[in-house]
Design a protein around this nucleic acid. Structure first.
Lengths: 220, 220
DNA sequence: TAGATTGTTAATCGATTAACAATC
DNA sequence: TAGATTGTTAATCGATTAACAATC
């Protein structure tokens, strides 16, 4: 077994490259250079080649990469050559946004378990899936064999949702609630914080007022 | 003027610390150590102290930090001591999720311009704000003096939305569309990619199958 | 004074990028 | 062969963390 040290950032970029390649394919493009991928993804060309080099050789020197082939290779690396069934806890606005999000469908994610505690929502069908109360998370998740859980509940309910998901047997959690969750070591946890991203902007906008200069690395 | 090299990651963590401090304050906690902040934010204690050190000295040796004071100090650093008015383009599920999101209200963000091209939505009021067609972005943004724009339209409409926001005079853009946008250098751009975050999880879950080992830095 | 905890330096660690040989 | 572009090494750059003096 090869042992590689793949940076987390490499994985996120591979996902971006792949989506850009899908788009290029629709446009009928056959081959592409690392420079062009870099432009599409907003990164350095050397970065693109380095990222790919963790997983093998995918291009042809002097020529570039085959758009379709490279896309498939990356999808394979990301394990997107299989179908994934996902559980979602919290069918509020954010939960609805996630389940309906075009990009998740396009990339083969299937929401097979949906939970919410609103009595008006429980029992409702969402694209063939019944909304269930969160007390049934453990039971239903393990029945449906969901390996990934997405949390879109308010902050104060998020840890409870995570605990239930873990009990039900998920191996990975994507948390959108604005709170840091504690999960067992072996569970993959990824936290996406909407407010933080907005607050990084406010920091930068008033940077002159406060007299902090930006590091060179911020300059695009 | 002091010249500091503040890592982008420091800013995101400050935002997380601040939210955790708000929570602690509600719980009646008066002082806190860097170790406890670190636990709440899921980072290293040295990291917390280092992050703060870019901006000054906020604690008392041997004692710790005053919860409320530190929170205000961080809010000041992030420029959250002022009100921010925000423009949103795309009032689909994701746009609704963002405007309704509790955390944005709590942190003082005010959506004063909302755009969507759905004829059924145009003219509708959302908490006192009328939904307008996106051809009016430039005009309305500059009238409302929005400095920040949030993009929650589908990928193929995102660049157009960004261009209009820039023409209207926004200084920062938060992009949720799954595509890399091109904006003038002086515009702060932050891209939050929902699909990417899910695909990082699928990569990790099938890592054994493929035989890639995870770097030590991944181990929590 | 003893114990606790900050603020900061220096070491470590990791990620990005430039450069270039390999090769189509 | 000349031009183009990859794959990879080595250098650079930046971020994290350990350690400890300062000090409450």
């Amino acid at each position: 077994m090869r042992t590689l040290k793949v940076p987390e950032a490499t994985i996120t970029r591979l996902s971006v490259y792949s989506r850009y390649l899908s788009k290029l394919k629709k446009q009928g493009k056959i081959t592409i250079s690392s420079t062009d991928i870099a432009v599409g993804a907003g990164v350095n060309p050397a970065q693109v080649r380095k990222d790919l080099s963790f997983f093998g050789e995918f291009g042809t020197r002097g020529v570039g990469y085959d758009v379709d082939q490279l896309n498939w290779d990356i999808l394979k690396i990301l394990s997107l050559d299989e179908e994934w069934t996902v559980a979602l806890v919290g069918f509020g606005h954010l939960g609805q946004a996630v389940t309906m999000h075009r990009v998740f469908k396009e990339r083969g994610f299937n929401f097979t378990s949906i939970f919410d505690n609103d009595p008006n929502k429980i029992g409702t069908m969402v694209e063939g899936v019944e909304i269930l109360p969160s007390e049934r998370i453990e039971e239903v998740i393990s029945k449906n064999k969901n390996r990934i859980g997405i949390i879109t509940v308010p902050a104060d309910a998020a840890q409870g949702a995570a605990d239930a998901l873990v009990k039900g047997g998920v191996q990975a959690i994507l948390n959108f609630a604005p709170i840091h969750l504690t999960v067992p070591q072996e569970i993959e946890l990824r936290e996406v914080d909407l407010a933080v991203n907005l607050e990084v902007l406010t920091f930068h906008l008033d940077i002159q007022r406060q007299g902090y200069s930006r590091p060179l690395s911020f300059i695009r």
